[in-house]
């Protein structure tokens, strides 16, 4: 019976693990819903700020903000890479790192140097080991409910570098929340600001600006970039939770099938020992 006993302890330990993964799955599901709500709450701000910027840019076409002006030569590129703080979320982080590295390699092949700003400790753990990449700023431990002021620092480092001319382009690497099952990693360009495809309507009126148009546009553009990064970070939380939910669900399912297999093995072992005992008794009786 020793074999059967061993199997029994194994089953109970797997059952405990299954309980944990199930709990994590449910926690992730509820957190995901909250993160999705937060993600949607960022939309009105982004839309409004874009409208004002478009209007300003159209009304003051003679003033070209450096953020809107594409530089012909790129010597150094900046990346803001958004990752999670915790693991157990499937291939989420690895996929983001892969798409970042692909873009980085393309730049490096052209002799362009790279600056990184990393959000999330998983990203830091990954990129600090790689040589030839310059990590200039980092933020981690943001939690699930992220506030804007935690994003300002790492973004400003990059914006300043762009204004000074030490980087000529700025990219954002993040996960897009397609649906619960799918998170698509992608690289987008933050600076120079991509030209709006939308035809800007010709306005016959203009605002009064206080203090002046230039300053208003400056602070709007900074906030605009920040709001994009903020949305990326919030979206990444939704992605993290979705990925964790799926990972934990498959872990629970795997534990279930493992338990089934072990249960079968246990039953067989028990049956074998009973049969053996019986045949021993019968054999003993026959000998007498």
């Amino acid at each position: 019976m020793s074999g059967a006993k061993q199997i029994r302890t194994q089953i109970s330990s797997i059952k405990n693990t299954q309980k944990i993964t199930k709990a994590m799955e449910m926690v992730a599901a509820s957190k995901m819903r909250k993160a999705q709500d937060r993600m949607n709450a960022t939309r009105p701000y982004a839309i409004k700020i874009k409208q004002v910027i478009n209007h300003l840019a159209a009304a003051h076409s003679e003033y070209k903000h450096p953020y809107m002006h594409a530089r012909s030569e790129v010597k150094r590129a900046g990346f803001i890479i958004i990752s999670t703080d915790r693991g157990l979320c499937g291939g989420l982080n690895v996929n983001v790192f892969k798409s970042a590295l692909r873009q980085i390699k393309e730049y490096q092949d052209q002799g362009v140097e790279i600056d990184l700003s990393i959000i999330g400790s998983k990203g830091m753990a990954f990129f600090r080991r790689l040589s030839g990449l310059n990590v200039v700023s980092h933020a981690s431990g943001l939690g699930d409910n992220i506030h804007m002021n935690e994003i300002i620092g790492p973004v400003k480092v990059m914006l300043d570098a762009y204004s000074e001319g030490s980087i000529d382009r700025l990219h954002l690497v993040e996960n897009e929340f397609v649906n619960t099952m799918t998170q698509a990693p992608g690289v987008s360009t933050l600076l120079p600001l991509p030209k709006d495809e939308e035809e800007v309507r010709q306005h016959h009126w203009d605002y009064i600006y206080e203090p002046d148009a230039k300053e208003v546009l400056d602070s709007l553009l900074v906030r605009y970039v920040e709001s994009i990064v903020y949305r990326g970070v919030v979206e990444n939380v939704a992605c993290e939770m979705a990925a964790r939910m799926i990972a934990m669900k498959s872990a629970s399912d795997n534990a279930g099938s493992l338990i089934d297999d072990l249960q079968l093995a246990y039953n067989k072992a028990r049956q074998a020992s009973i049969t053996q005992e019986l045949s021993e008794i019968v054999g003993g009786a026959a000998a007498v």
Binding site: Y45, K48, I49, V52, S117, I118, M124, R128, V135, V136, S137, H138, A139, S140, H147, M148, N149, I152, G153, P154, K156, V157, D160, L220, R223
Partner: peptide
């Protein structure tokens, strides 16, 4: 009328400090 409200306290030198913090955080870890 639209108010685009800041959620964080903003000031030039404060922003500077946050940027510095993020930089230092990276350096610290490195």
């Amino acid at each position: 009328v639209t108010v685009l409200s800041d959620t964080a306290i903003r000031a030039e030198d404060l922003d500077e400090n946050m940027a510095l913090e993020a930089k230092q955080h990276a350096e610290e870890l490195l």
